[in-house]
Simulated assay, not measured.
Amino acid sequence: MAGEILDSKGRGDAHWQWPSVHPEGRKFGLMVAAASLVCAFLAWETLAWPLAFLSLGVLAFFRDPERVVPQDERMIVSPADGLVSLITLVEPPAELLVDDGTGFRGLAAGKVTRVSIFMSVFDVHINRAPIGGTVQRVVYIPGKFVNADLDKASEENERQHILIERPDGVAIGFTQIAGLVARRIVPFVKPGDLVAAGQRVGLIRFGSRVDVYLPAGTDSKVVLGQTVVAGETVLAELGIQTVIEGVNQ
């Protein structure tokens, strides 16, 4: 089904399937499963069974389902699964603003809407490109591991900034932020790579957050407390500013 076109008129073939496990997680699942087998061989059942269930949990954490990505250049799709925990007006990080010597000037200075998506250990942790274009920057910054749900995590935690520019000059910056349990951010892309909207660009291990910096003049189409799906949920529509209210029920 990967690569198949499905549309809003019902054309295409959609069916449920088991999600695959990303290669980055298979080694961890196999390691835990091997430890479970060793404990079972030694008749340490009190350890063997919990480790067996843990191996299934690890494989589930690294699940990598297919997503149907809206094909509309006006749309900015969510780069992460999870809960919209913060929507604020902020200056983008300096790493996305300054001229880094590559010839790409970076984002323009000035406050923009930042949408923060918190990923619990139960969410899919594969991150995807919010727009299609050229990867202009991938900037890794070591840091702390405070709760990723806190606003200060954007400036204090281990994080990685990614900047993508479309051929028409529209650029989106977003940041992968490690959390309390997360200890590694894994990139799948590098500067100069061409990516499509919704393409996999990296993952964060075990609980984390992604911040998306929308272009000036663009508001969020999701509301605080909403659950979003990477590559599928429309986070914003370019140039559209509006207030959308949600009811917690």
Score class of each variant (00 low, 15 high):
Asp13Tyr: 13
Arg209Lys: 14
Lys190Asp: 02
Gln226Arg: 09
Ser220Ala: 04
Gly3His: 00
Asn147Gly: 05
Val212Cys: 01
Ala2Phe: 03
Thr46His: 13
Ile162Tyr: 06
Pro79His: 12
Phe104Trp: 07
Val201Asn: 14
Leu51Arg: 09
Phe41Asn: 13
Thr218Ala: 02
Gly25Tyr: 03
Val181Lys: 14
Phe62Cys: 03
Gly225Gln: 05
Lys221Asp: 12
Tyr140Met: 13
Ile141Trp: 02
Arg137Ser: 01
Leu30Gly: 05
Val98Pro: 06
Gln17Leu: 13
Glu66Cys: 07
Leu56Trp: 09
Pro70Gly: 00
Gly217Lys: 15
Val38Ile: 02
His125Asp: 13
Val32Met: 01
Gly246Lys: 11
Phe122Gly: 11
Lys152His: 13
Pro92Ala: 08
Ala40Phe: 01
Leu6Gln: 11
Val228Cys: 02
Ser116Glu: 07
Phe174Ala: 09
Gly198His: 00
Val229Ser: 14
Arg183Tyr: 02
Phe118His: 05
Leu47His: 15
Ile87Ala: 10
Leu96His: 09
Gln17Trp: 12
Ala52Phe: 12
Leu214His: 14
Trp18Asp: 12
Gly198Val: 00
Glu73Ala: 03
Ile172Glu: 07
Ala40Gln: 13
Tyr213Val: 10
Gly239Gln: 00
Ala94Gly: 09
Ser154Leu: 08
Asp151Asn: 12
Gly202Phe: 01
Glu232Val: 08
Val115Asn: 04
Thr46Phe: 15
Asp100Phe: 04
Gln17Lys: 14
Ile141Glu: 12
Val135Gln: 00
Lys190Gly: 07
Phe145Ile: 07
Gln199Leu: 04
Ala182Lys: 05
Leu224Phe: 09
Val201Asp: 14
Ala236Asp: 06
Val112Met: 11
Ala148Asp: 03
Glu158Tyr: 01
Phe28Arg: 07
Ser116Asp: 10
Phe145Tyr: 12
Val98His: 06
Val212Asn: 07
Val121Phe: 04
Asn157His: 11
Leu59Tyr: 01
Val210Phe: 02
Gly82Trp: 04
Ala182Pro: 02
Gly57Asn: 07
Ala148Cys: 03
Arg209Ala: 10
Thr102Met: 09
Val121Met: 05
Phe145Glu: 11
Leu150Tyr: 01
Asp211Ala: 01
Tyr140Gly: 10
Ile87Cys: 13
Val222Asp: 09
Ile5Tyr: 00
Val58Trp: 06
Gly133Gln: 08
Ile162Gln: 08
Leu150Glu: 04
Val90Gly: 10
Ala14His: 13
Asn127Gln: 14
Val58Arg: 07
Val69Glu: 00
Arg184Ala: 05
Pro142Asn: 06
Gly202Gln: 07
Val247Gly: 08
Leu194Asn: 12
Ala153Gln: 10
Pro65Val: 00
Pro23Glu: 06
Ile204Phe: 00
Thr175Trp: 03
Tyr140Trp: 10
Ala40Asp: 09
Gly143Lys: 01
Lys9Gln: 05
Leu97Ala: 01
Val186Ala: 08
Pro130Leu: 13
Met1Pro: 14
Asp123Gly: 06
Val115Thr: 01
Val229Met: 14
Lys190Pro: 03
Phe145Gln: 11
